[in-house]
């Protein structure tokens, strides 16, 4: 990789970070006390598009479309970013509303790391999400974790945007949804 490409990548990364921070700053952040409701305000999340009509409340589709089932991490980091907090707040409130739902947190890493280290990193990310949900009142007995390391990318690309999408914690519903 040439120096200029590297430089461009780094610039792109900085720009992405700046944009997401700006997005966060310009929107009211739903705090822990705010009800989830449809269309939560986390526009910087590269998640699903606009909500689909006639989604059964309490269903997996409801969770994925109206709440958001992924949060994203910075390179080699596992702390919950400010743009992920509102998503996880919404996840925890949804999970409290539907107490029979069981979830598995899947930690994922981008391909810019070696296989075993990325498994460890994904485990840290999954655990960060788990701890956050537990801190918001979700019973730890309802949450399992697994790391897929870099084995389960959701974006096949090799751009910084693709890497960013692949560094995530995925909350997968494993049972109890409507």
């Amino acid at each position: 990789m040439s120096f200029s490409t590297k430089h461009a990548l780094r610039l792109a990364l900085v720009t992405t970070a700046a944009l997401s921070m700006a997005a966060c700053a310009s929107k009211p952040k739903p705090g822990p006390g705010v009800g989830p409701g449809p269309g939560p305000g986390y526009p910087s999340q590269p998640g699903p598009g606009p909500g689909v009509g006639n989604v059964v409340p309490g269903s997996i589709q409801d969770f994925v479309v109206n709440i958001g089932d992924r949060v994203y991490f910075d390179f080699d980091q596992y702390d919950i970013r400010s743009d992920a907090g509102p998503v996880l707040d919404a996840q925890s409130q949804w999970l409290m509303r539907y107490p029979s739902v069981m979830v598995r947190i899947e930690g994922n890493a981008d391909e810019r790391g070696t296989r075993e280290y990325n498994l460890a990193l994904g485990a840290r990310r999954a655990n960060s999400v788990r701890e956050y949900l537990v801190s918001r009142g979700v019973s730890p007995a309802r949450i399992s974790t697994v790391s897929f390391g870099k084995e389960r990318p959701i974006d096949p690309g090799t751009s910084e945007d693709a890497y960013q999408r692949n560094r995530n914690g995925h909350t997968a519903i494993t049972g109890g949804a409507r």
Binding site: A120, A123, E131
Partner: peptide
């Protein structure tokens, strides 16, 4: 390696 609570 054994991972527990995110730590390996």
């Amino acid at each position: 390696s054994v991972e527990r609570g995110g730590n390996s």
